[in-house]
Simulated scan of single mutants.
Amino acid sequence: MEHSLDLDDFKTKAKALNLAVDFSGKWATYRLLDDVQVRNTRGRNLVKSDPERYNLDRIEAHLKKNTGMFSVADVVNQYEEKIETIKNDFDYQVTIEPWQIDHVTTKGLYINVDFGLSQHGVIFIGAYKTDLLEDGNYNLYLKTNDYFYFIDMAGAANNRFMMGPTLMRQLSLYNGTVPIAKEKVISTIDELTEAINFLASHGVTEGGEQLVRLEQQLLEAVQEAKKRLKALEQKIRDLNVLAKERIVSSNERTKDEELEQIKNQIASVKVSQRLLKGRYNETISQIDEYQEILQARKNKGK
């Protein structure tokens, strides 16, 4: 919708993206043609808080405010790149050691896992979700909504699916590491930055309402990142306080183990903090540079 100039243009690009659109009824309906979706989805169900957003009148009003020229090929390419980005994105980074790996293939890793108390087997993780480290360990990049097929060594009758968070907890428990969380706002900033760059590459650098909307969303995401940085800093302080309390109150038998767990948690949070701070600072610099360019253009036009 951000890359169409009129309704015919919108329909053409929707068709190219395998999206069936029907405006013949009271409510617009949509259906993904390259998915298993059987029934049409009414536009009013796409955004519960704003049921009119994807209905005909609102779409036409929206399109009139768009600027820039985008070919069908441009839109399809951007969509495919976005799908690939989403595929490669992750929520948690988990480190596993060689002894946790059953075997490695060119397509990915087969990892030893348990299901419950008595089931032992392997799970396959695609190579695009893994990264071999210099010390022989692997980093795995998992999403909370990932699921993996558990192959039971005792027989196929016990095969089943295991969700990403369950796998993450088990792998971390086995080797004593703490998963590193990727702050969700990083993905939001990346997505908005790519969308703004796409508009800019097609001549929409200022004035277009679709650009104004994205810029506002980016500023909101930056503010959210700032809040998350403060929250992570507070979490580190809280963990340090907890460590001091454990030193005083824990018995000698459990103290070392508890302190090691807290130490690992602090290290994990610090990595998350460093990743977010780097992206935050980079985005602030890009925004400042962009605003300087706009100001220079305004001064030149006077």
Rank of each mutant, 00 (worst) to 15 (best):
E282C: 01
I266S: 03
Y30R: 04
L242S: 10
T41Y: 04
G278N: 15
N158D: 12
F10L: 09
I262A: 11
V113A: 06
D135R: 03
R44Q: 08
L276P: 08
T105D: 05
G164M: 12
F198N: 10
L192A: 13
D34T: 07
S250T: 00
N40A: 15
V212E: 05
Q217A: 11
A195I: 00
E194R: 15
S201L: 11
T283D: 02
E81T: 12
A221N: 02
E209W: 08
G126T: 09
V241P: 00
I247T: 00
L32H: 05
N45M: 05
T41C: 03
R246F: 08
N66M: 09
R279A: 04
V185E: 04
S268K: 06
D35Q: 09
N197Y: 10
V222C: 05
A200V: 07
D22L: 11
V76P: 04
E245G: 00
F23N: 07
E224P: 00
E292P: 00
R160S: 14
I236D: 07
E81R: 15
G278F: 15
Y280I: 01
R253I: 09
N281K: 11
N175Y: 15
R279G: 00
E134R: 14
Q286R: 08
I266W: 03
G116H: 14
Y30L: 07
A200F: 04
L132H: 08
V76R: 15
N45K: 07
R228H: 09
E2I: 12
A267W: 00
V72L: 09
V122M: 03
K82N: 13
I59A: 07
R160C: 14
V21A: 02
K277S: 13
K227T: 06
D238R: 07
R246A: 05
V248E: 08
K255T: 00
L199N: 12
K226N: 13
E80C: 10
A231M: 07
D131N: 15
Q119V: 01
E191K: 14
V21D: 03
S250C: 03
L140I: 02
